[in-house]
Simulated scan of single mutants.
Amino acid sequence: MTPEEARERFAAARVARLATVSASGIPHLVPVTFAVRGDQVVFAVDHKPKSTTALRRLANIASNPAVCFLADGYAEDWSQLWWARADGTARVLPPGAEPVSWLVAKYSQYADRPPEHAVVVTDVHTWRGWTGS
């Protein structure tokens, strides 16, 4: 899969997994909703239930901005399997930053209630992917 194909498949996915690493080297993996514009991936802390908005993923990015996202498709017909990965450097923006509109455009669930907390933009330096066909 070419980097362009990996970006297209990734961008079309509805959910990705975000991998971050703490300052002490402990990995952390969570699912995120996201949007892509060019070589940038955005996600935000939204209204889905959480115990706090001071999330580990944000603390990890503050101490180590290197992140990795993975989106994939599974099918019992393994020739239909695929994955796409985005590796990059993340930065936390203040609540309500402009890229929230990217999420609103992708997810109807945000139409009436856009994310109101931290916004994270990742500048992707590498797109990779694989497909079973």
Rank of each mutant, 00 (worst) to 15 (best):
I61M: 03
A35W: 06
E4M: 05
K106P: 01
W82Q: 04
S133I: 13
L29F: 06
V120I: 07
E76I: 14
T33P: 01
H125G: 14
L29T: 11
R17V: 11
Y74T: 10
T126L: 15
T89E: 11
A105H: 10
T89N: 08
Y110S: 04
D123C: 05
T131R: 15
E4A: 14
S133M: 12
L18Q: 02
A44M: 02
R91W: 01
T20K: 05
T122L: 05
P95R: 13
D123I: 08
A66R: 10
A6L: 04
F43K: 03
E76V: 15
E8N: 05
Y107M: 05
D87P: 02
A6G: 08
Y110Q: 01
T33I: 08
A86V: 03
V120M: 04
D77Q: 10
A75L: 00
I61V: 10
A86E: 02
D39E: 13
W83E: 07
D123K: 08
W127A: 08
D39R: 12
V32K: 02
W82S: 07
G88E: 09
S51R: 15
R91I: 06
G88I: 08
K106V: 02
V42I: 09
D87C: 12
Q109A: 13
V45F: 05
D112F: 12
T89V: 15
A86G: 07
T126E: 15
G96K: 09
R9M: 12
A12Y: 10
M1N: 10
R128M: 12
S79Q: 11
L103A: 05
G129F: 10
S22K: 01
K50M: 13
N64G: 08
D46S: 10
D39V: 10
T2K: 13
T53R: 11
T2V: 10
A19H: 05
V32L: 00
S108K: 13
V92K: 00
A84G: 13
V36Y: 04
Q80Y: 03
L70M: 14
A16R: 00
V30L: 09
V41M: 02
W82C: 04
L70H: 13
T20P: 02
V92G: 00
A12I: 06
Y74Q: 11
R17K: 14
R7D: 03
A86C: 02
L70E: 15
A59N: 00
L58C: 08
R128P: 00
F10C: 07
H28F: 12
P65V: 02
R91S: 13
S51Q: 14
A59V: 07
T126D: 14
S51V: 13
R113P: 04
W102F: 09
V45P: 07
A13K: 00
V120E: 00
K106N: 04
S79G: 12
V30G: 03
C68Q: 11
G132T: 15
